[in-house]
Design a protein around this nucleic acid. Structure first.
Lengths: 246, 246
DNA sequence: CGTGACATTGAACAAAGTCAAAAGTGGTGG
DNA sequence: CCACCACTTTTGACTTTGTTCAATGTCACG
């Protein structure tokens, strides 16, 4: 089983009672694969995308830039993430999607989506749930940038990324690979990269984290969670009752 | 025709080619009306809501608090806004919804939603579109709090509120009622209320805005838009092609 | 080795927060 | 109509946090 299937499949089964048959249907829908190199634009602001996407492997960012060059990364997209459901109301993209690493994504056409969403009740809950999680992550991003200090922001983001990567089996117990430069992290956290660097160093000096190349270790998870006021509630990791309308 | 119908109806017709019959169906779904007083909680964090809601009249806030009292207003909910579609995946709320003014909302049950969403193709695009707009507003909120200065944030929020209120006929050409205290605005913008007050005064002294009671006038829209780098793209005000899957 | 991208450090500066007190506002009852 | 209350807004002095600019380090890769 190729790794791309593994990542997506793990996210699926983590969140809904999806069976092998359902997973097969889903993955059959993911045959229109596109690949990108770091820095490539997947979606340009103003363009009207024609398909939705699922990240098969690699990291991407959704970002919005101001005219004067300031850039805000709205969120990171990780393997198994679903994006641009807004395709279906025919609106131009209000943001930019960019590959941060070598990236492989699957395009899902409108027709395909219709089948998944309406035609197969085993899949629909996952799509719905995915949208709910994405919006919750966005809300938490607002809180992070609006009401947390720089140190809290960094700790909180590290914990979020670790939790999300764990679900798809791309993190170890207290360690994960963060294959993006500090500029992107700073743009996500609304900080200057200079200050971000200081904060990272500070967390490291205090023994909360360790860094080696692009590996990050959460040395003192308890302290990080307290510092960040981190709760996993917003990630909706528990499957829930899936009361989908029939 | 009561005002509540008017506000909702205007938002509907602004965004999709909804006919009178469709609007009737929609508004018939809005018979389960609840009212709240300023400060009342509509949804508590951790609770599992059983219906989705449409705001009929008044303002509400969706907010998330940290244990130490810091509070972030994630977004303002205005008449015609739709919320808590996440009901349908059976997840507990990760946020709190609070009435900021006398508030009247309609509860939409799962069954009702199923009928609207699947059973009537005239309505489905509006629900979908509404979700798209809400998410876009959220993204813009991230940019505002992450990469804009305090003055820019205030200008940007005022322009957004004016645009959203205009759609439902609750704003005049360059003026609208903002029936919420500065504390709430500050919590939305990730600022202290002290600093917010200074910024308001500064904008007023420079002739960009005027304030009287809870009325705000945009005296120099051009200057405000340039200051805020405001573009209406993210509000998706143009109806679009509504390529909904069948 | 040398090169280019990325990361770190220091010093000066700017933006926003905190604390505390004063000045509005609006509603209520005498 | 006025006096009083609670509440919100404003103002001033000071502190903290994060930014900017510029120089220096580091590391993978050719």
């Amino acid at each position: 089983m190729p790794k791309s299937r593994s990542a997506l499949f793990r996210r699926l089964v983590h969140y809904c009672a999806i069976d092998d048959q359902g997973a097969d249907i889903f993955e059959n829908a993911c045959r229109d694969i596109k690949t990108f190199e770091p820095g490539d634009l997947v979606i340009r602001r103003g363009e009207q995308p024609v398909t939705a996407f699922i990240v098969m492997s690699g990291w991407a960012s959704r970002s919005i830039s101001l005219e004067d060059g300031r850039n805000q990364v709205v969120n990171f997209m990780l393997p198994g993430d679903f994006f641009d459901l807004q395709v279906f109301v025919g609106q131009p993209a209000d943001h930019t999607v960019r590959a941060l690493t070598p990236l492989s994504i699957a395009g899902i056409s409108r027709q395909m989506m219709g089948e998944l969403f309406v035609g197969n009740s085993k899949i629909a809950p996952y799509l719905w749930w995915s949208a709910v999680q994405e919006e919750a992550i966005l809300r938490e991003q607002v809180v992070r940038n609006g009401r947390r200090s720089a140190r809290e922001r960094v700790a909180h983001l590290l914990l979020e990324l670790h939790a999300r990567l764990s679900v798809i089996g791309e993190a170890e117990k207290d360690r994960f690979r963060m294959p993006v430069g500090q500029t992107h992290i700073a743009d996500a956290l609304g900080l200057s990269y200079v200050h971000l660097s200081r904060v990272f160093s500070h967390l490291e000096k205090n023994g909360l984290i360790a860094r080696a190349r692009s590996e990050v270790s959460l040395l003192d998870r308890k302290a990080l969670e307290e510092l960040a006021h981190f709760s996993t509630l917003y990630l909706h990791l528990e499957p829930g009752k899936l009361n989908f309308f029939e």
